[in-house]
Design a protein around this nucleic acid. Structure first.
Lengths: 209, 209
DNA sequence: TCGGCGGGTAAACAAACGTTTTAAACTTAC
DNA sequence: GTAAGTTTAAAACGTTTGTTTACCCGCCGA
């Protein structure tokens, strides 16, 4: 078994388990046994459990943010930037940039939800330090797309929207049950997004479509 | 030291630490040492750590839900139920029903955020079993207040709104830093609510105020 | 006065955790 | 072919965890 293979298998197992049970509740032994590698391999390749967590996010976010940055510049240079264009672009990227769509996207959202609701902010500060730049780029384009909304209002509405998105998508499975029972509708990430986009757009604009 | 005193001190310490560091990351030793009681007292009075977590929520939610149920009936019998009336009623209750306003409300929101983002759903199913009834009451009144919104749309929008509320309010402290720096505005729960209510109302109505 | 009983405590428990150490197996280069 | 370096394997390390045990104290009814 080559080196890169072991690293990849650890990351694959880790991201699934972290999304399923949380960071603190997932032991290295569970990860390595699911990955079919030795326990010591994690500390050998990553140094520590916390570094493994970061590596999981890194493998996810780095390509995503690069693609986002490119698409963002495309959109900006295209001339007319509307709120809807920006939102659909971001959501398409989040849902479809990874090959096997729904499974992977779901894991990504659950990880994000975990990262943000975790009280100790080691991970959040690390994320901000590494990926804050792209976030600011998106925010700048967003601001230009709704020039009527005052900056502070926009600041708040963005956070409300983020909450709606992450919270809903990371809790998708439990919603699955209710939705199936009450409305006989199967829930997928893209299905949710259809409902979510108008909600966010309306919220950002401030109740006036 | 009387019995109720020990139980109360454990609950007080536990709710603060749980909100600060999360359930899994808070040890019984940390709780008991903060509370100034013996380690074994937790298992003696509550049976297990999980039962303690439930007890913390129970002490919070039971009076809140009772008050909510009363106010809800008041509102219903008053005749004209508007969305805004319902939302301000709920938010006032959540913010002000506990004596020492901001500290306690913040802890409550952080605990809710933790409960909902926790992957294993022991806690969530327990909460639903115990307090789902009041939630359904609110939902019924809400539905009556916006008769134009189809049930399934409303279902989704409620969850989006819940996400916005819980996510934002449970991450208040980190927002504090940013808001202070960029806008020189101190963040309180009630201040957030001023921004949050129009956002939620707009979102529920579906972009049309 | 005695006996039991609920509340409280110190000490110990087994289990699980992240991490480190040891050595064996493999790859690579000369 | 052998030595150096890299990766895997198994075992043990020292902590920390939630929980349990055994004992002590003060009280109340008999």
């Amino acid at each position: 078994m080559s080196q890169s293979d072991t690293v990849k298998r650890i990351l694959d197992a880790a991201e699934v388990l972290f999304a399923q049970k949380g960071f603190a509740e997932t032991s290295l032994r569970a990860i390595t046994s699911k990955a079919g590698v030795n326990l010591a391999a994690v500390n050998y390749h990553f140094g520590s459990k916390e570094a493994l967590v970061q590596a999981v996010f890194e493998r996810y976010l780095t390509p995503f943010c690069q693609a986002l940055s490119v698409k963002l510049k495309e959109l900006e240079s295209s001339g007319d930037v509307t709120l809807e264009k920006l939102l659909t672009m971001v959501s398409r990227l989040a849902l479809g940039s990874h090959g096997d769509e729904p499974r992977r996207a779901m894991i990504f959202f659950r990880l994000s939800g975990q990262a943000y609701s975790q009280p100790q902010n080691h991970l959040r500060t690390w994320l901000r330090a590494h990926y804050g730049e792209v976030f600011r780029q998106v925010l700048a384009v967003l601001r230009a797309s709704v020039p009527d909304v005052p900056p502070m209002e926009l600041f708040w509405r963005v956070h409300f929207s983020l909450g709606a998105v992450i919270f809903t998508l990371s809790g998708m499975e439990s919603l699955q049950t209710i939705s199936k029972k009450d409305f006989n509708e199967t829930v997928t990430a893209s299905r949710i997004t259809e409902h979510l986009l108008p909600f966010v757009a309306g919220g950002i604009r401030g109740g006036r479509a």
